[in-house]
Design a binder for these strands. Structure first.
Lengths: 230, 230
DNA sequence: TCAAAAGTGTTGAGTTTACACCCATGC
DNA sequence: GCATGGGTGTAAACTCAACACTTTTGA
């Protein structure tokens, strides 16, 4: 049985980073073709013997130098036949988060043309990448309500207020600080350290760290992490 | 820029139906190749000028005669290089539900080789289709908790107990009948009719109908339909 | 001593859970 | 009259939402 098909398959990666009350997305500058010099999501064509998720990790490393641990499949864009003007491309989009260290792009590899952009001041984007980022952000927002992600986005030791601010930034609405703290602490997967944040004005905040072992145990047991507040 | 790629792209469709406290999945018997006569999900290769979602609708109609309205993208299977033993195939899986009328397959088209199987007594399946069905079922179950789907799976007029039974069947646990009724009625998108179910033993139940207009309005307003109970 | 951010409890409202008996029908 | 499934209310436990003042630090 011979199948003729003239469709290319690609992956795109949406990587979010967080710093100082701003969400960032990692973009690269296109090097070739009509869209040369336009900004776009990291990504590219899948190789013949390559699983999709390997392709995502590879492209990210090649194009930006950023190493990610887990990328989650977001959506497959394959209804718009002209999303790539050259020929038909179906793209499987993955998204993930990285910790703040990665926000300093190591200049190695091809990374000169990679840059972090604040989510609210994105440049003009190639293809349908604006739409894809929107969808990824929607998913991130939705996830935040039912499982406490976001630890990946923070330093390994962080003051409680960083977590608060991360939530207000992503959800784009204020939260009740007292209720939020009660709720998060009740899950019992972050632990106080005996350190304090040194810099900045105001009273220094105690630093907390994420207890990933506890968190994964709870996940396995299927505990549900709903987080509700104004 | 020339890209060499030897990967085929296909879609698979998981269609659920419901009848008498049982969930059914629509399968077809393979006609060609090594896997001839094995059961598999309806699906096939995407045509060059064809959006993914059109491909799903087309394949379903061709292979089973079943007409679906909306199919939701489930997941793209592309990590296992040998999921199809012949060559590399990446498959975008879609799932959806149909109303009980469709459970009687119209003998037209190629439908002779299509059949509804109860979810708990599936035959041996080709490829990784067992895994795909499992994932679709997990998603169906998850959806049921946060939005009252399932009306599609029932007759247009149904006794309340049908809805109850649908929930216990999918969630695989008993529910509190009184609390369930209170909750569902409080959403106010099903309406009493003045008819009663005629057949069966016991006291005849009032028939209800789904108020899709109301439901869609609420969805637009972003009302959240959480349904919790034992 | 002032500005800035951190830390902390209580109360009322609303929601969820648990629970058992009577009703209408066909046989 | 009995078997079968349909229909109904209430109280206790829990969770959520609203709300404001004190503490610690650096400048």
């Amino acid at each position: 049985m011979e199948i003729k098909q003239n469709i290319k398959i690609a992956i795109d990666a949406i990587v979010f980073g967080y710093q100082q009350n701003q969400l960032f997305v990692l973009l690269i500058k296109q090097k070739y073709g009509d869209l040369k010099n336009q900004w776009a999501l990291p990504g590219g064509f899948v190789q013949d013997g390559e699983p999709l998720k390997k392709a995502v990790v590879r492209e990210l490393k090649e194009e930006t130098g950023v190493k990610v641990t887990t990328m989650e499949q977001l959506y497959t864009f394959g209804d718009d036949l002209k999303r790539d003007p050259r020929f038909r491309v179906i793209s499987v989009a993955y998204f993930g988060t990285v910790n703040p260290k990665e926000l300093k792009l190591n200049a190695g590899t091809d990374a000169k043309e990679a840059k972090w952009f604040p989510l609210n001041t994105l440049p003009k984007l190639a293809f349908d990448h604006k739409k894809i980022i929107q969808k990824a952000f929607d998913r991130l927002k939705a996830k935040l309500n039912y499982q406490p992600i976001g630890f990946e986005l923070l330093d390994s030791k962080f003051p409680f207020s960083d977590l608060e601010n991360l939530y207000t930034t992503i959800l784009q609405k204020p939260i009740d600080r007292r209720n939020f703290r009660k709720k998060i602490l009740s899950f019992d997967f972050i632990a106080e350290t005996d350190e304090y944040r040194k810099i900045g004005s105001g009273r220094p905040g105690k630093l907390y760290e994420f207890k990933s072992r506890k968190y994964n145990e709870l996940l396995k047991q299927g505990i549900s992490f709903e987080i509700k507040f104004a």
